[in-house]
Design a protein around this nucleic acid. Structure first.
Length: 852
RNA sequence: GCCCUCGUGGUGAAAUUGGUAGACACAAAGGACUUAAAAUCCUUGCCGCUUGCGGAGUGCCAGUUCGAGUCUGGCCGAGGGCACCA
């Protein structure tokens, strides 16, 4: 039998697509566009199974849309700035650029072997000056619009490496490389004013109908809009401090106030900087744990000041002012009033420092004796013990009414606060996009003029220095602006900036004068389907949404407000983990006969500990190399397997048996095709009269096309694979019947091959070429006539239980069906001594008889 | 602590709107073909009574309905997100 030589055939089609530029796209206003984008990879070295899954999902969709007649944009590029390159370069004493470019060429060839329908003419790389030149222009554009500013902010500072660490590089309060305790240090940093768009970013979520609800919820929580008011407290005890401003969502509990708490970073702390006790207190605060969880559960700590605050609604009441470890400086005003009865944190604090607990809200079914002691009451009810606020309903009346009273008295005003923080984009790193800013002799900020862009990174420099390598580049730092000598900014941009507009660049990847051409963007944007991991649910997706809005801000020609119309988040690829004597082992190094017990490959008597299946990662060594799989089984089989076992939005288990089964499928489908092809050669031109089996073929074909279309449209790719098995099983069953001699069979067979093409493009292209079909870019129409079934199986239920299945003509009447039931001998026993009291008949589906 | 999602055979999973639960596959067992093996094909969800048939059955408990994997309420379990956000 003719064995399927995947290597030969896959290479043949890949070079055919490359030579013919099959997937090159151009703006064509006569065609409907479809922009399919997968999150572009970081060029870390080699592709992993996660990439294979991500890009296979996108490729199936792209090919399907091409066949449906869309003008499809399906580009690929490289998110090529970032720390791994810098770290690898330091370690091996080479240039990050070379390391990155080598990786890109390896990964590109790997992706090409997967047979992806990518327009490689649009390939971009964020580390190339041709790309980041435009990013620098956008930075200046945003600066001109007032969306970029510079301010002092705390950073995680590693005192040994003398460098700033990202939050995720701080492990248990220590630097991930040096192990030194991380310090908080104030640095001048560049910020994007993302808060300016907080409301838009929140409100526009409701238009993103094709986004997973989960991602939208996560973004909503992250933005964290809350409604309340700001109010001023008069302060006694220090003539220099007369007022402290607080934000609250519960002004209605003001009569329950028993203290005022400030963040240790609050400006008032200035007056205590020489106080040794306060210093000790600050140190205690920073000591209480480092993980976020332990911070949240940490004991409440306070430092009592000599200040008192006056309750603005009852000036006869004075309360103590504390510094407290649970008050955050970067939310609200870094100061809160404490109402222990109706806030658990305040209650914990009050119990520790023996402060009053004034209950001012009672549940509706409690009387005025209601009193809070150990658990704060935060539910609905009515206000009491609050003079003129008494009897207001909580929360629907009380909050707004109180705000109105405060506004009238000019003590406070309505205020909306966001949890979202402005985006700090400064990184004290070499391998990133230089910020096009400079400082003159007076340290005044100077923009680098557009004509002087790009500011290119210096090459071949020494990276093994303390701090930011760019700081040491004295020659590079010097720049003349307007005839004045200035020093360049040495911070580079967060790499999330690079990925915040790459989808726009793909529309005009070669344009030298602009980041993108407005006509191109108007045609291609928004991305119709964006596909990637859920780990980017917040940062990357929120930043991209912000950046798009920021570019559109004050720019009437740029009408895009949301970059991604549809979003799909795929699950991870998992594999069991193996350990021997506390060392992780790669699946290649273990062996098993029954799939349960595993042994060392080098010593089959040493048993290996099998751990739970987890996301593939280098650190746990539970990875499967896609390149080896493609080499052993072919790209089509790998594509087929990666889609087969689980719905794409869920995690999938890698399974060697599954991979093998997919390989067998492509092999046996090919063999079947060879058999069928021989028979199809014998077809005479004239059409045979339609017979029963001929009709079966038409019915099957149209039904399966309908299912496949539905499953493609809805990302039910695992069910799609099941449909492929159904196709094989059906064709294999009828392959020896006489219908193979009909033209009708051939027409249907071609339709079936065509709808399998998006998943198995090499195999199917070859099968179709054998039948002289060269152009695969069409999608068969469904002939509804074959979907109408002439007979149906009707379920017979008695008292709600299925008792039989009766085959009837379609649209049989209830009376006729009932006659059939009466004739049925199997059902007779159920009717003995029983009366039918009710019949429910759902046409062509089911009849339920209620007997008594 | 708050928010979200999900619980279906030995396993991964199907089941557009409430209407045949377990499609399709993996594994295991049995069988066919074969001198034998490989490959291929067929049968098997569970519990009863040796065919056939009956019973229970989609995490647990209730409810709505002629009818619930699907809808409602409560509970249990798993996973994810946020985490002192005033």
């Amino acid at each position: 039998m003719n064995r399927y030589n995947f290597k030969l055939i896959e290479e043949k089609w890949q070079s055919f697509w490359k030579k013919n530029k099959t997937f090159s796209t151009r703006v064509d206003k006569n065609k409907k566009k479809f922009y399919c984008l997968e999150m572009f990879p970081y060029p870390s070295g080699k592709i992993h199974m996660g990439h294979v899954r991500n890009y296979t999902i996108g490729d199936v969709l792209s090919r399907y849309k091409i066949q449906k007649g869309f003008n499809v944009l399906h580009p690929m590029g490289w998110d090529s700035f970032g720390m791994p390159a810098e770290n690898a370069a330091k370690l091996n004493n080479l240039d990050p650029k070379i390391w990155t470019e080598d990786n890109i060429s390896i990964m590109k060839s790997q992706l090409e072997k997967l047979g992806l329908s990518i327009d490689w003419d649009r390939e971009i790389s964020t580390c190339s000056p041709a790309y980041y030149k435009h990013q620098q222009k956008f930075f200046l554009d945003l600066y001109d619009k007032g969306l970029v500013y510079r301010k002092e902010n705390y950073v995680n500072w590693d005192p040994i490496d003398k460098t700033v660490l990202a939050n995720e590089q701080v492990i248990n309060g220590k630097g991930w490389r040096s192990g030194a305790p991380v310090e908080r240090k104030k640095l001048n940093q560049w910020f994007f004013n993302i808060n300016k768009f907080a409301d838009d970013l929140l409100n526009d979520l409701k238009d993103l109908e094709k986004w997973p609800a989960k991602v939208k919820t996560m973004q909503r929580n992250w933005i964290g809009k809350s409604f309340g008011c700001e109010l001023d407290f008069e302060i006694k005890g220090n003539p220099k401090v007369t007022k402290i401003k607080c934000f609250t969502t519960r002004p209605d509990t003001l009569f329950g106030m028993s203290f005022l708490a400030l963040s240790i970073d609050h400006p008032v702390a200035e007056f205590y900087k020489d106080d040794k006790d306060f210093d000790l207190f600050k140190k205690n605060c920073s000591k209480t744990g480092t993980t976020e969880e332990s911070i949240a559960q940490a004991e409440k700590l306070g430092f009592k000041t000599n200040l008192t605050a006056i309750n603005p609604l009852d000036k006869s009441k004075e309360v103590p002012v504390y510094f407290a470890n649970f008050v955050l400086m970067d939310y609200g005003f870094g100061a809160v009033f404490g109402c222990p009865a109706h806030d658990q944190r305040d209650l914990d604090f009050a119990l520790k420092y023996n402060l009053k607990i004034n209950t001012v809200v009672r549940p509706i079914d409690e009387d005025t004796n209601f009193k809070v002691d150990k658990i704060a009451y935060t539910g609905p009810g009515v206000i009491f013990n609050s003079k003129f606020l008494d009897e207001l309903k909580v929360p629907e009346e009380s909050i707004l009414s109180t705000i109105q009273i405060l506004e009238k008295k000019k003590i406070g005003k309505k205020k909306i606060n966001f949890r979202l923080k402005d985006w700090g984009v400064s990184r004290q790193r070499y391998w990133g996009c230089p910020i096009p800013m400079a400082y003159d002799n007076n340290n005044e900020i100077k923009k680098v003029p557009i004509e002087q862009l790009p500011i290119k990174l210096p090459e071949n420099i020494n990276l093994n220095v303390n701090g930011n390598p760019l700081d040491h580049q004295e020659d590079w730092k010097k720049i003349i602006i307007d005839g004045q000598e200035c020093n360049l900014e040495t911070d580079t941009l967060d790499t999330f900036v690079d990925s915040s507009w790459y989808f726009l660049r793909f529309c005009s990847p070669k344009n030298e004068s602009e980041g993108f051409n407005i006509d191109d963007v108007n045609y291609w944007m928004p991305v119709d389907q964006y596909i990637g991991g859920v780990e980017h649910a917040i940062l990357h997706l929120l930043y991209s949404r912000f950046f798009t809005k920021a570019l559109a801000y004050q720019n009437k020609k740029f009408p895009v407000s949301e970059p991604f119309y549809g979003l799909f988040t795929q699950g991870m690829v998992c594999h069991e983990t193996y350990k021997f004597e506390n060392e992780w082992l790669n699946p290649n190094d273990v062996i098993s006969e029954n799939g349960k017990d595993f042994y060392l490959k080098t010593n089959s008597k040493k048993k290996v500990v099998v751990g739970p299946s987890e996301s593939m990662s280098k650190s746990k060594k539970n990875t499967i190399d896609p390149e080896i799989m493609i080499k052993n089984f072919g790209a089509d089989s790998v594509r087929f397997f990666i889609l087969s076992d689980s719905p794409p939005e869920k995690d999938v288990q890698w399974s060697d048996q599954g991979m093998l089964a997919s390989f067998k499928f492509t092999q046996k489908f090919w063999s079947l095709n060879v058999e069928l092809k021989e028979k199809l050669k014998k077809i005479t031109k004239e059409k045979f009269p339609q017979n029963k089996i001929d009709d079966d073929m038409s019915t099957f074909t149209n039904q399966i096309i309908k299912k496949i279309t539905f499953n493609l449209e809805n990302f039910h790719y695992n069910v799609l694979i099941a449909n492929f098995h159904e196709i094989y099983n059906f064709l294999n069953k009828i392959k020896n019947s006489e219908i193979l001699n009909t033209e009708n069979f051939k027409e249907n067979y071609i339709k079936i091959l065509i709808v399998m093409n998006p998943v198995l493009p090499h195999l199917i292209s070859e099968c179709l070429a054998d039948l002289n079909i060269k152009d695969t870019s069409f999608w068969p129409e469904i002939d509804e006539k074959y979907l109408e079934e002439k007979s149906v199986n009707i379920v017979i239920q008695i008292n709600g239980k299925k008792r039989d299945l009766i085959n009837c003509d379609k649209d049989i009447s209830e009376d006729e069906l009932f006659k059939k039931i009466n004739k049925n001998t199997d059902l007779k026993k159920y009717f003995i001594n029983k009366k039918i009291i009710k019949k429910i008949y759902v046409k062509n589906k089911i009849i339920n008889l209620i007997l008594k």
